Computed example of a mutant assay.
Amino acid sequence: MYKATNEFIKARDKFTGKFAVKHIPVVKRIGGGVANQCYTNSHNAKDEYSKGARRVVMISGWLVQPYHKETNSTAIIAHWWNADITGQHFDTSPLVDEGEQYVQDSALYQYCVENDLMLSTHLAKSLLYQNEKFEVAMDFENILFKPINELRTEYFYDLIKQA
């Protein structure tokens, strides 16, 4: 397991209550989904498999990318994938690098359920781990990050103001 993966799990686990954050060492990458649409891909896979006799659930979490020596950083990307009733994890999203490590974070799923009507997206903001500190992506296109001291779930989502 990458050092960043281990540090992330320790830091995040403090804020997930009954949902332990855990590294998932084996996830079968089957593809077939649309790039940059992991939530929709995961939801579609759940729906498609439910038409048959196979029960599939959506999994919320993160992809921890390999360490980037040039920037002394590790990207931690919010991600959704699936698991079947036997505990086999699989991912229909394309473009997942073999070097990325999957980290299940069911507290994200729970947060989405509890705040569904107020969320503009079920995909959490991604993170950067640099110099042993975490930063949350505020604007991925313009590469703008905001330092955060704690990995609280609410820091990863923007709530829509209700009128």
Rank of each mutant, 00 (worst) to 15 (best):
M58K: 10
Y39N: 02
D139G: 03
E100Y: 08
I148T: 04
S93W: 05
Y2T: 05
V26G: 10
D139A: 10
W81F: 03
L119C: 10
Y129H: 08
Y49D: 01
E132W: 07
I9L: 11
G52Q: 00
N72W: 13
G61H: 12
F134I: 11
F8L: 06
L127C: 01
V136Q: 00
N72I: 06
A137S: 13
Q101A: 10
H68N: 07
K125Y: 04
N6V: 14
A4Y: 02
S126W: 01
D139L: 13
G99F: 00
L159D: 01
H89P: 06
Y102I: 07
R54P: 13
K22H: 13
C38K: 01
R12D: 02
S50W: 08
G87H: 10
E135V: 06
A163E: 15
Y39A: 02
M1D: 09
T121W: 08
S50L: 03
L151A: 03
G32Q: 11
N82I: 11
H23Y: 14
E48K: 13
I143S: 09
F15N: 08
A75D: 00
Q37K: 09
P147A: 13
I24Y: 09
H122Y: 14
W62M: 07
D116A: 08
Q88C: 12
K46Y: 00
I76T: 01
F90N: 00
K28R: 03
Y2N: 15
G52L: 05
Q65H: 15
V34D: 01
A45F: 04
S73C: 13
L117D: 15
H79K: 04
G99V: 09
V103M: 11
T153F: 03
N142T: 00
Q104T: 08
N149E: 15
A20N: 00
G33F: 01
I85F: 08
Y157D: 06
I143N: 10
V21A: 00
R55M: 07
K161A: 09
Y102T: 10
Q65I: 12
E150P: 03
K146H: 01
N115E: 04
T71V: 09
A83C: 10
V64H: 02
V21Q: 12
D116H: 02
K133I: 13
I160K: 05
M1P: 15
D139W: 05
G33A: 02
P147N: 05
K18S: 05
E141N: 09
A83E: 15
R12S: 05
I59F: 09
Y111F: 15
G61V: 02
D97L: 01
P25I: 01
F134R: 07
K146D: 13
A107V: 04
H89Q: 01
L151Q: 02
F8Q: 06
